[in-house]
Amino acid sequence: MIKKLKLVAAAAALLAVTGVAKAEDFKPAIIFDMGGKFDKSFNEAGYNGAEAFKKETGIEYMEFEVTQVSQREQAMKRMARKDASIIVAMGFAQANAVEKAAKANPDKKFTIIDMVVDLPNVQSIIFKEHEGSFLVGMAAAMKSQTGKVGFIGGMDIPLIRKFALGYEEGAKYANKDVEVFQNMTGTTPAAWNDPTKGGELAKSQFDRGADVVFAAAGGTGTGVYQAAKDNGKFAIGVDSNQNYLHPGTMLTSMTKRVDVAVQEAFMSAKDGTWQPGIKVLGLKEEGVGFAVDEHNKDLITPEMTAKLEQARADIIAGKIKVTDYMSK
């Protein structure tokens, strides 16, 4: 196995004409959280970022998928012992483990996504989900014929309420009389992967009159999008661009560029430009946004686009203040 890895690394080094020595020495590592790397959502975005890095540089990365709480710290320490050049931890839940592992390995670089760990060798990347949610909330309210829009969250945690609050504020900004329904799928991690319940919640919101729903619910979202398609309503995707799933009924997707964040963390560590500290990615940094592509360009009218672009500029300029649930 190790031989095979070395071969791959050597081949990669040959292919990449520049930095032959670097490709041998540079060992990035990524630790996925409980959802698993193929969760069609957050972790998978991290996986895509790591894969993009591998494709670009030909450098293999180490990875681990956590199944037990205590494995987080264990995995990080093992990566550090295997001399990982940088360790990227996916998700807020790994914060404590990063804190302990980073203190135990002060000479190693750590990057954590979605959470802040304040240590001299940790880079914390967080997103302004509320800003992106604000814009898709506006889009939902403008698209709605009934004046009622819905939000379906995954597990009921502060991070998801952050999405919900931004969405609601955006919808109210576009149409102050709009009615916003909110449902959370559940209170346990199973809520991240329950498409059936997601679909049921969406249907109940449609029955109450909603005609656009936004799902911030990981794998549960697929059920929501399917329900929207079956009922001829609109749905809004999350994290990755999910417009392609059901062209015609996917109004847009609130994108959160976790993939870019991971790729950049690896890249900057390789180039030596990696910096510890907090990196906040909002609309301004294009860390969040809404997706317009060939699948949904007919659904977003020029008038909507104009208003959304104006709001985006206003948020960046600070003219519109979107409430952050976390700092409320």
Partner: peptide, 25 residues
Amino acid sequence: NFIAASVLTYLLVEVLIAPGGQSPE
């Protein structure tokens, strides 16, 4: 089991969460 999970989640999300913390702990 489900009730226990819900009780624990509720308490951690609403009551016992560390002030200023993001994750339910």
